[in-house]
């Protein structure tokens, strides 16, 4: 494995990590506020479809992005109504949202485009184009640093940079603002927040809305940047890998980034090599596919550091008993 191959694998790691990272941060906001969300997958899928569909029809990827975010936030709102307003089971609501998205996207795609549940391929302004970082061309010939800068860091779409900037932003919002403190408090002890005169329902809805926004960007990235158009079930379990990364990261933004990079790296390797041969030991591609889930189970089991979720996670808040 030479240097250039390594650069290529890391490059594809960054591209594959981006949707995971966005969805993972989305889940982070929701779950730190005490609302479990296993509907990340569904929200991403819905956003992927609507962003691709609107981008295909209007030719503008930015309108597509907005449509994707709107679609994802509608589902987030539904989750909020079920989980917060009507105090329903958050897990069941998430399951329902995943199925709703899986069914509706194909149904609407077939009705609008008649292409067997996909959107037309996006071209030109319908896709996010790679950005070239300043001086990428001039620095490219420099050994080692040149390729790293020009190939690995430069040349991604704007959403990739946005996703990685969202990591410090999330950390700052959660740990350095009043809103973040309250949001974390509402996930640990909502009664205390209520006593302080802050609306539990309002905070949780705000968290769920942020979750919808980030999932929307993640889905739009999938359909308009990573690939050119929507195909049926294109999220392919990424919402669940993001959920796994969230647990792996123990609900912390910086750790979430490393977890998503790790899982993105596994996807990149699985994509490049069918069966990985490490010094005579052949690792089948299925092991690569299953590794994020196996690692998460190991972490959940508490053998390698215990993952403790927010204390009030999954429980609807009842103001008066």
């Amino acid at each position: 494995m030479d240097f250039l191959t390594l650069i290529q694998i890391f490059d594809s790691t960054i591209r594959l990590s981006t949707p995971l990272l966005l969805a993972c941060l989305a889940g982070l906001f929701s779950e730190r506020a005490g609302v479990y969300d296993i509907g990340l997958e569904g929200k991403m899928l819905m956003a992927a479809f609507f962003s691709a569909a609107v981008a295909a029809v209007t030719g503008s990827v930015w309108l597509g992005l907005l449509a994707g975010i709107a679609a994802s936030m509608v589902l987030a709102g539904l989750h909020g109504v079920a989980a917060i307003t009507f105090r329903g089971n958050q897990l069941i609501s998430g399951v329902a949202i995943n199925f709703l998205a899986a069914g509706l996207t194909v149904l609407i795609a077939q009705d609008w485009f008649q292409q067997g549940g996909r959107t037309p391929s996006l071209m030109g302004g319908g896709r996010f184009t790679p950005l070239s970082l300043p001086l990428a061309e001039t620095l490219a010939p420099v050994p080692v640093i040149g390729p790293i800068y020009a190939e690995l860091l430069s040349g991604h779409s704007i959403l990739v940079y946005l996703a990685f900037l969202a990591v410090p932003a999330s950390w700052w919002v959660l740990n350095r603002t009043r809103f973040g403190l309250r949001l974390r408090a509402v996930g640990e002890n909502p009664a205390a927040v209520d006593t302080a005169g802050v609306s539990v329902v309002g905070l949780r809805f705000a968290a769920v809305a942020i979750c919808g926004l980030l999932c929307g960007i993640a889905g739009a990235y999938l359909a308009t940047a990573l690939q050119a158009g929507f195909v049926k079930d294109m999220t392919a379990g990424r919402g669940f890998i993001a959920l796994a990364a969230l647990i792996f990261a123990k609900w912390r933004p910086w750790h979430a980034m490393w977890a998503c990079l790790l899982f993105g790296f596994l996807q990149a390797v699985a994509l490049r090599y069918q069966n990985l041969d490490i010094g005579g030991l052949v690792i089948p591609v299925q092991v690569m596919d299953a590794l994020p889930y196996i690692l998460t189970v190991v972490i959940l089991a508490g053998f390698v550091g215990k993952a403790i979720p927010p204390r009030a996670g999954g429980e609807p808040y009842v103001k008066e008993r």
């Binding site: 949202i97 199925f99 077939q110």
Partner: peptide, 17 residues
Amino acid sequence: ELIVVIQALVILFTGAL
């Protein structure tokens, strides 16, 4: 996929809502 939508709605109404 219509069935998937119906299934989702049944889960939503009988479970979450």
